[in-house]
Design a protein around this nucleic acid. Sequence first.
DNA 1: CCAAAAGTGTTTGAGTTACACCCATGG
DNA 2: CCATGGGTGTAACTCAAACACTTTTGG
Lengths: 240, 240
Amino acid sequence: MPPTMPEPAEWTIPEVAVAVDLAILTVHDSALQIMLVKRGIPPYEGMLALPGGFLASTSEDLDHAAARELQEETGLDARALHLEQLRTYGTPGRDPRRRVIAICYVAFSPQLPVPVAGGDAREAVLMPVEKVLRPRTRIAFDHKKIIADAVERARSKLEYTTLAAAFCAPEFTMTDLREVYEIVWGEQLDPRNFHRKIIGVDGFLIPTGERVSRQPGRPAALYRRGPATVLHPAMLRSRP
Amino acid sequence: MPPTMPEPAEWTIPEVAVAVDLAILTVHDSALQIMLVKRGIPPYEGMLALPGGFLASTSEDLDHAAARELQEETGLDARALHLEQLRTYGTPGRDPRRRVIAICYVAFSPQLPVPVAGGDAREAVLMPVEKVLRPRTRIAFDHKKIIADAVERARSKLEYTTLAAAFCAPEFTMTDLREVYEIVWGEQLDPRNFHRKIIGVDGFLIPTGERVSRQPGRPAALYRRGPATVLHPAMLRSRP
DNA sequence: CCAAAAGTGTTTGAGTTACACCCATGG
DNA sequence: CCATGGGTGTAACTCAAACACTTTTGG
């Protein structure tokens, strides 16, 4: 860490602020959606941005800061969903006020419980990423790029991990799980081959023994998330 | 970025220093090795640590800071090798002096040219990661964990990208490339199947037309890196 | 009974593994 | 000419894609 620099006993601290931002993804209304908040102050006042905030204290762990932000913004408990570091963004000028280094996290959340009234009661919305990423949509700071990276992380993690289940409610059907894949990847999957594939990965799903009948048709078995975390062999999406 | 916080026009900047550290990996003497520097000052004086330094100015891009450190520490040109962000480490207490957030990068380098005399002429060494990661070996700060993460990144990137070639000299044989895989993964591969697999990925290798005869036996064809970056289907290592 | 969704079985082809075999060179 | 590594051919196997077919419900 301090090997190259001049290294006096004291260094000059450049005027750098450290932020933790969150890309909270969820599947809702047959679309992959991301949580955004409306900015109340300049710069980018009134525009949508990722939730996040500055490092609260000098003794707060990064992962803890992310979990705290998540709790504050959405009321969600970080222990109940998947939260992982995405990347750090620090291009000068990304915040017009001063140099800000943003350590970004992605969260994969099941349907958000309430219409997400944050603790701060600031205006939070869910927006389909498809819409966010359109060229015409304008998002504060460099957050559009961060969202694109978060979505790509989600898409590739579905391939080789069992994280798709993190988007499902605690109990779900095979079709619920398949729809997560279809929505995140934007691609239809064969229900029959999908079923066989998932059942073949042991530890992915635990059958509850229950069945639900939500449409006409044969009732579907209910499952819970199993202990497996990796998918091997991977579940590949088609390459263009 | 500043959505959750109190948000006065001015925020308090916590006393946080931002560092950029490098995990420079190379294959040398039939081992995956990492570049370490001996610390000249406390804390951890005399111990080995990753090369790196503090953000030089308030207007320096992170990727640029990493490339600059690389140049300063090793004389290597970042344009000539692969450099990518790994992860950001910020657990409080990881530097005993004050809060330091380290944005870490991994570099994949071909054989380092000279015995790595850095610009600063500080003592730099290559050490096999196998040795670094042994429980008994002590490394400054939390750098052992960072090194473990860097190695895991390298191992998994060989599976689904063409990055193995980044460890090879500009011109190399199929066996050179195979040995990169074998050394990084610590696993023997069948030379015949490996050859066919790599040849089948188009854009991975460009034949130079030349041949070299370095041992008794049929001379091997020489190749250069091709434009392909992804390996599809992936090259899987065996799972334990 | 019919439509619709859940789930099983079967065929085919792509891709990997394992290994026999041929090729081209140095000593 | 023979040991050695480079490279090709091929059969057995694994797994995914495609799809016919059975099961079980709501209306």
